[in-house]
């Protein structure tokens, strides 16, 4: 039990997600009990099929649990309706995907600003904020470029800024280095670590890779949809 409950950002109680495919029921995750404090850099490890993506999807509000309870930054995701989930995805969480998922018909700037515009924020102030992050990540010369004109590393950095634009409480990264070479992968991990250290963001990284290990402050291992290990790390 965390002695400082107000510091708990994510609380999961008996969290379960199952999928029905005809008569077959597939268990994504089962009976997950978890508390993640604010400001941690969490590395979520597990082999393919262990439930990492399922857990991440639930944390990101992209999916809803079948059973159990999930509270993130005070939002009860189990009982949320579609509008509430939309709001949650806009304002509370920022997602970074393995395949970047930039919209090909939008420029770098437009991709970055999109979540803020969806949240109803004015374009001009959003653009200013975006320029700040673009400068921090050395992408100002790519502002008007389309994703097809970027390298993998540049695309992922764009995706990271997109995830940050609404200043969410939590950044979720699903295999952020999966489509990158080791050099770019290292850079991305350092970026995420910097976001955690300098800007105090809670970052959760689901990954096979060991690149994130040096930066992790909290480690969760999943196996067969259950938590095999969940503990703070000595950084």
């Amino acid at each position: 039990m965390n002695p400082f409950p107000e510091r708990v950002l994510i609380r999961a109680e008996s969290l379960t997600r199952t999928y029905s495919l005809g008569s077959i029921e597939i268990v994504g995750i089962q009976d997950i009990n978890l508390e993640i404090p604010k400001g941690e850099l969490v590395v979520l490890r597990g082999v393919s099929g262990s439930g990492k993506s399922t857990l991440l999807a639930l944390l990101g509000g992209l999916d809803q649990p079948t059973r159990g309870r999930l509270t993130v930054d005070g939002h009860d995701l189990q009982g949320a309706n579609p509008e509430q989930l939309n709001e949650y995805r806009r304002n509370t969480v920022g997602m970074i995907f393995q395949s970047f998922n930039l919209l090909p018909t939008l420029t770098v700037m437009e991709n970055i600003c999109l979540p803020a515009l969806l949240a109803g924020k004015p374009y001009h102030s959003t653009r200013k904020r975006a320029l700040y992050w673009l400068e921090w990540l050395h992408l100002t010369n790519r502002v008007d470029h389309y994703p097809s004109q970027l390298s993998g590393g540049e695309m992922q950095r764009t995706a990271i800024i997109r995830a940050l634009i609404n200043e969410p409480a939590i950044i979720l990264a699903d295999e952020p280095t999966g489509n990158l070479d080791s050099g770019n992968g290292n850079s991305v991990m350092e970026l995420l670590a910097e976001l955690n250290r300098t800007f105090g963001r809670t970052v959760i990284i689901a990954t096979h890779s060991s690149l994130a290990d040096p930066f992790a402050t909290f480690r969760i291992c999943l196996k067969d949809g259950r938590i095999a290990e969940a503990a703070a790390c000595n950084v």
């Binding site: 579609p82 939309n86 304002n91 999109l114 979540p115 949240a119």
Partner: peptide, 16 residues
């Protein structure tokens, strides 16, 4: 489809 799902994941409502 993927782009539409990304829009949804970023907070676009189904109405939009």
């Amino acid at each position: 489809r993927r782009e539409l799902s990304v829009l949804r994941s970023l907070g676009a409502s189904s109405r939009m």
